[in-house]
Design a protein around this nucleic acid. Structure first.
Lengths: 225, 225
DNA sequence: TTGACATTCAAACCTGTGTTTGAAAGTTTT
DNA sequence: AAAACTTTCAAACACAGGTTTGAATGTCAA
C-alpha cells in the first residue's frame, strides 16, 4: 500500500498546510507557493489534486467543518438543558475559543472570521450553512432572556452586538495589542474575556425587557433625565 | 496662474480619488491604476507627485485627518459639558457616522477601520495619534458611568466592547447584509443603531458598578442561581 | 526667443502569483 | 515485461501591479 499512503500523504499534507495558512492569513494573502512549501510539495500539486487554489480553499472549509463538527453537536445538545445565562456563556466561550485556540479544531472559526472580513465566493454558503445556525442559537438565548415581548429587531441587534464584541478580538487584534497589550489574550487566558463579554451582554440584554415597557415609551433618556 | 492650478488639479485629483478608493477598498486592494483612472491622470503621476503608493497613502491619511479634524474639536468640546449618557451617545453616533457617511469627512473613519483590519506601516502612528485619544474619551465616559471603583481592566474591556459593536458593522458588513438585510443601514438610518448600541452599552456598563460589589465577590452567577 | 524646469505620457521593466505544460519517474494493470 | 496510469517536477506561461524611463509637451525665467 505504499502508493496509497504516498498518495494520501501529499494531498493530506496540502490540506493540513492550507488549513493552517488560510486560517492565519485568509484566502487573499495566502500563496499557493507558501502552502506547497509548508506541505513539502511541488507548486503544481495544488492543481493536480484540487484543480485550483479556489477549490483547495473550498475543500479546506469543508474539512475544517468536519474537524469541528462533532464537538459542536455535543455542545448544542448540552446547551438545550441549560439556563440562557449558561448557554450564553457557552456560546461566547466556544466562539472565542475558535478565535484564540490553536490547532485544526480551531481552523473553522478562524476561517469563518477571515471570510467575514474578506469575502470570497464561499461567503454565501458559509452564511447559510454555518453563520445562520449560530445566529439562531444566539437568537434563542436572547429571546429567552428578554422575554415574550422581544421584537425581532431587538433580538437581531443584540445578536450582532454580542458577536461583534467577540469578533472584534479577531478582526482588530493588531490594534488592541497596541492599545491595550494586557488584553491580548492567548488560548489559556480567555476566561477573563468570556466572563466580561458574557456579563456585559447579559446585563444589556436583560435590560431590554424593562426598557421595552418603560423608557422606550418615553423616547429614552435625555440629558435632563 | 494656469500652471499652478493645473499643478494643483492633478495632485488634488489624485488625493481625492485615492481618499475615496482607499477608504472603500483599503490599501492592499487599491491599485495605483484605479486611482489614476478615477483622477484622470497618468499612472506615473502617483510616483511623480507622491513618490510611491505608500507615501500617497500616508498623505491621504494626513489629508483625511485634516478634513475631519475641525469637526472633532467641536464635538469634544461640546461633550465635556454633557452627562456620560449623552457623551456615549455622541461617541457612538460620531463613530457610526464615520463608517456609514459618504464624502470626504467620512474618509478618516473608514480609513481607520480599514487600517485596523489590514494593518500597513501606518498603523502604529494611527493608534497613537488617533485611536488612543478616542479610547481615552470612551474610558472617561466609562469611568464616570461605573464610578470610582472602576478598575482599569474593567474600563478597557468595556471600551473594547463598545467599539467592537460599532466596528462590527464595518468589518462584517457583507455577512450582516446576508444574515439580517434589514440591519444594513445607510447614513440616514443609523439612529436605530446608535440608539441600540448606546442603550445596550449603557446598561452593561452601569451594571458593572453593582456587579463589582456583589456578584464579583461570589464569582458570578451559576446555573443554580 | 532660448534655455531651464515642470508635467505628462506610453512603453518598458521588474517582481510576484496562479496556472499550464510536457517530460521524467513511480506504480499498477494486463 | 510492456503498457497503462499516476505522481512529481522544473520551466514556461500569462497576467497583474508598482515602478522606472526617456521622450514629448507645456510653462516659466532669463
Amino acid at each position: 500500500m505504499g502508493l496509497d499512503e504516498q498518495h494520501q500523504t501529499t494531498r493530506e499534507r496540502l490540506l493540513e498546510a492550507a488549513g493552517e495558512v488560510f486560517a492565519e492569513k485568509g484566502y487573499r494573502d495566502t500563496t499557493v507557493r507558501e502552502i506547497c512549501q509548508q506541505a513539502n510539495a511541488n507548486v503544481a500539486a495544488v492543481n493536480y489534486y484540487f484543480g485550483d487554489k479556489q477549490r483547495l480553499y473550498a475543500d479546506v472549509l469543508r474539512y475544517a467543518h468536519q474537524c469541528s463538527g462533532a464537538a459542536r453537536q455535543s455542545e448544542i445538545a448540552a446547551a438545550e438543558r441549560r439556563s440562557p445565562e449558561v448557554r450564553l456563556q457557552g456560546f461566547v466561550e466556544a466562539f472565542l475559543g475558535h478565535i484564540f485556540n490553536e490547532g485544526r479544531a480551531a481552523w473553522h472559526g478562524k476561517l469563518m472570521a477571515r471570510e467575514m472580513m474578506e469575502p470570497t465566493q464561499a461567503l454565501d454558503a458559509l452564511v447559510e450553512e454555518r453563520v445562520r445556525p449560530m445566529a439562531h442559537e444566539l437568537e434563542s438565548i436572547t429571546r429567552e432572556l428578554i422575554g415574550p415581548e422581544a421584537t425581532t429587531e431587538q433580538v437581531r441587534l443584540c445578536v450582532v452586538s454580542v458577536v461583534g464584541q467577540c469578533l472584534h478580538y479577531h478582526h482588530s487584534r493588531p490594534v488592541i495589542c497596541r492599545l491595550y497589550p494586557e488584553l491580548d489574550f492567548g488560548a489559556r487566558d480567555i476566561t477573563v474575556l468570556v466572563r466580561h463579554i458574557t456579563r456585559f451582554s447579559l446585563s444589556a440584554i436583560k435590560s431590554m425587557a424593562s426598557l421595552s415597557d418603560d423608557a422606550d415609551r418615553k423616547g429614552g433618556w435625555n440629558e435632563g433625565q
